[in-house]
Amino acid sequence: MNRNSFLAALTVAVMGTGLMIDSARAQEPTLASVAQATIDAAELEVNNARAAIEKGKELIATIPEDSPLMPDVAQVVQAASENWKIAVDSLQGAIDSASKIDGASNDSIAADYALLSKVNAGVAVSGAKVVQIAIAYVEAIATEKTESLDVIRVAMQDALAGSSQVRFNYDRVKTLIAQKYSK
């Protein structure tokens, strides 16, 4: 085999490997399908939070107005309302980002949209979970399960801290991606 034949064979081998990698990639879940799965999971949690809010409305009506825990109820309801808004907005953000994956001009931009969608979905999930914890707190007051209030109160505080960490990191992801394209 002379040098030219060897190089030609090498080219064919490398291109063949590339094709094999491409076909293997075709079997892997695409960025869009992974993003959609994450959005579905977030949507489920947001729907659970929506159901919890409906339940919470009924529960609040059963708490006597002169209850000493009424200020607590007001506080958690406010936290729930803020997080509900965050959850809904972030879910929409995740859907918007995911819708841009297929139309992206290159793989790198598509991956960044997928990443934004994933983190937005994470923000939505954590917001929805905070709402669920808040309603659990209201439920404990309404059903007079006062022994569980201390545990849920601490869980609520930790969840609020965790949720703000998720949002902080979402902002960090956005900034890092923006920096990538502003260079």
């Binding site: 994470g122 954590s126 914890i133 849920i152 609520m156």
Partner: peptide, 22 residues
């Protein structure tokens, strides 16, 4: 993004804890 995901997991753990408390 991984860091955000871990924090989201911690929020889920708190939701599970409050459910158990209830």
């Amino acid at each position: 993004a991984d860091l955000a995901e871990i924090s989201a997991i911690s929020v889920q753990a708190m939701a599970n804890l409050s459910e158990a408390a209830l």
